[in-house]
Amino acid sequence: MAIHHKVLIIGSGPAGLTAAIYTARAGLLPLVIEGEPSSTSDQPGGQLMLTTEVENFPGFPEGIMGPELMTRCREQAARFGAEFITEKVTRVDFSSRPFRAWVRETEYSADSVIVSTGAQSLMLGLPEEPRLIGHGLSTCATCDGFFFRGQEIAVVGGGDSALEEAQFLTRFASKVHLIVRRDALRASKIMQERALANEKISIIWNSTVSKIHGDDKVAGVELTNTQTGATSELGVTGLFIAIGHRPNTDLFKGVLDMEDSGYLITKPGSTYTNIDGVFACGDVQDHTYRQAITAAGSGCMAALDSERWLEHQH
């Protein structure tokens, strides 16, 4: 027998938890299948669990730590009766109602589903990555920066997360090289200014990492110049990857409409997907803004869309 809820929320970043707060306050007793622990951003709480200070979330003039913010959102949802399961959904069936989702053998059903599975960090795709992850190669600066005290390391990427990581890592490392594919940074102006002003950060433009050296730990990287194709060596003992994200939508392939890049498609100005009663919010359907506050905003939209849709059933 399936365990039935009016609203099922899959994913628990700012979008999912905001949807949970709203639907819980509306008395819909949502079930949140929040994901399971991981060292990537595909985990309960989402991408903010791997960040440090969040300075741009309204209401926190002194800033707030990302994990702390997410813990508070979760408590707020729980306070109004949201239920949580710390597992990953393994399969869904949205072809008939009630909609169904499984965690391995356990079946859940719901009148309405809110998808907020977010996005996770991309890796470089080099064959040596699986071997070296945890041995000098990392996707989590806040977890691993500590182990590189006094060492020379590199961060790959030119966006806000790459710059935030580089900045954070200068607390430990003697020098942080920022490896940027183009001749410009994607990051916001304030982050760029901070990075450029930091003496410990040096930027290597127009370059990609083509090889990571080292048998049992990172012992340097080979760089390829994107303009000339010339290769060079960089002697670093640590490499942090922050080159962007891909949406966590493998679960919904062939079920929900998505772009070639995997982002879910929602009807403009709403959170409606191609399936009536299934809504999507947060980074899983947004490759433009990708902020905690926009995710939270769309989580609220999904909750209201779902609430109103449920009222018109029967």
Binding site: P37, M49, P67, F146
Partner: peptide, 14 residues
């Protein structure tokens, strides 16, 4: 583990 590591906190209950 360490106090400042989010994923460490996440697996503590497990």
């Amino acid at each position: 583990w360490a106090e400042w590591c989010g994923p460490c906190k996440a697996i503590a209950p497990v």
